Deep mutational scan, measured.
Amino acid sequence: TQSIHIEKSDTAADTYGFSLSSVEEDGIRRLYVNSVKETGLASKKGLKAGDEILEINNRAADALNSSMLKDFLSQPSLGLLVRT
């Protein structure tokens, strides 16, 4: 696993530069990185398409609903625990 911390203040970007997809496997919801913008903040921090997001801001990914995800992604900083 890899811990990634991203700050939007690093650039004038209003997004982190990646998209997520939610997949249900064996009754457990998993979050995967769908795509990463080549010039985006997430790419600079090493996030890659296909990575599994285990935690966002110290909250287990399978416990997050879509409104919580939207809220986290609109925050000025983001902490991710990722399995590559």
Rank of each mutant, 00 (worst) to 15 (best):
A60N: 15
N65K: 08
K70Q: 12
T11W: 06
G79D: 15
N57Q: 05
R29P: 07
G40Y: 00
K8V: 02
G50L: 01
I56E: 00
K8P: 03
L81G: 06
S3F: 15
R29F: 06
I6Y: 05
A13N: 13
L54V: 08
E38F: 08
L81N: 09
T11E: 11
Q2R: 15
Q75M: 13
S67M: 10
L73I: 04
Y32K: 03
K48L: 04
N57P: 00
A42T: 04
I28D: 06
V36R: 01
Y16D: 04
G17Y: 00
L80Y: 00
V36G: 04
A12V: 12
L64W: 02
L81Q: 10
T39Q: 13
G50Q: 03
L80K: 06
S35V: 07
S67W: 10
D71T: 10
T15H: 08
S43H: 11
T1Y: 13
N34Q: 12
I6A: 02
G50D: 03
A61H: 07
S19G: 12
L31Y: 12
E25I: 13
Y16R: 01
S21F: 11
K8I: 07
E25L: 07
N34V: 11
S9T: 11
D71A: 11
D14H: 05
S77L: 07
T1E: 08
A49E: 12
S3Q: 11
K45I: 10
A60L: 08
V23K: 12
R29H: 07
L31C: 06
E52G: 03
Y16N: 00
R59A: 11
S67A: 14
L41R: 09
A60C: 15
I56Y: 00
A60D: 06
I4N: 01
L80T: 03
S3V: 14
E24I: 09
K70H: 14
N34G: 12
G79P: 03
T11S: 14
N65D: 14
P76M: 04
K70V: 10
S22F: 15
S3M: 15
V23H: 10
G50E: 00
V23D: 08
K44Y: 09
A49K: 13
S3P: 06
Q75L: 09
G50A: 02
L80R: 04
S74D: 15
V82Q: 05
S19V: 07
S74P: 05
D51I: 05
V82S: 07
E7T: 13
I28H: 14
S67Q: 11
V82M: 05
V23L: 08
A12E: 14
E24R: 09
L69M: 12
L81H: 06
G17A: 02
L73H: 06
T39E: 12
I53N: 01
E38W: 04
L78W: 03
G27H: 05
D71G: 09
N34S: 14
S35G: 08
M68N: 08
S22V: 11
T15M: 07
A61G: 02
Q75D: 07
L31I: 07
G50I: 04
M68I: 13
S77F: 09
R83H: 07
F72Q: 11
G27M: 01
G40A: 06
E24T: 12
G17K: 01
G50K: 03
N58V: 05
L41G: 02
S77K: 09
L47P: 02
L69Y: 13
S35A: 12
D14Q: 10
S22A: 12
I53D: 00
S21K: 15
D71S: 12
N58A: 05
S66G: 12
G40P: 00
A60P: 15
L54M: 09
L80W: 04
I4W: 01
T15D: 15
R30P: 00
G40I: 01
A42D: 01
L41K: 08
G50H: 02
K44A: 10
E7I: 11
R83M: 09
G79H: 13
A49G: 06
G17L: 03
T11Y: 07
K70G: 10
I6S: 02
S43G: 13
N57W: 00
D14C: 07
K37G: 09
L69K: 03
I28G: 08
A63N: 10
D62A: 14
G40K: 01
V36L: 03
Q75A: 14
N58E: 09
V82K: 03
A63I: 12
K8L: 13
G27D: 07
G27A: 02
N34T: 11
G79W: 12
L80N: 04
T84G: 08
N65E: 12
K70A: 13
D14G: 08
T39L: 09
S22T: 13
N65R: 06
I53W: 01
R59Q: 15
D14I: 08
D51W: 07
L64I: 14
N34C: 09
E52C: 00
I6V: 06
R59E: 13
K8C: 04
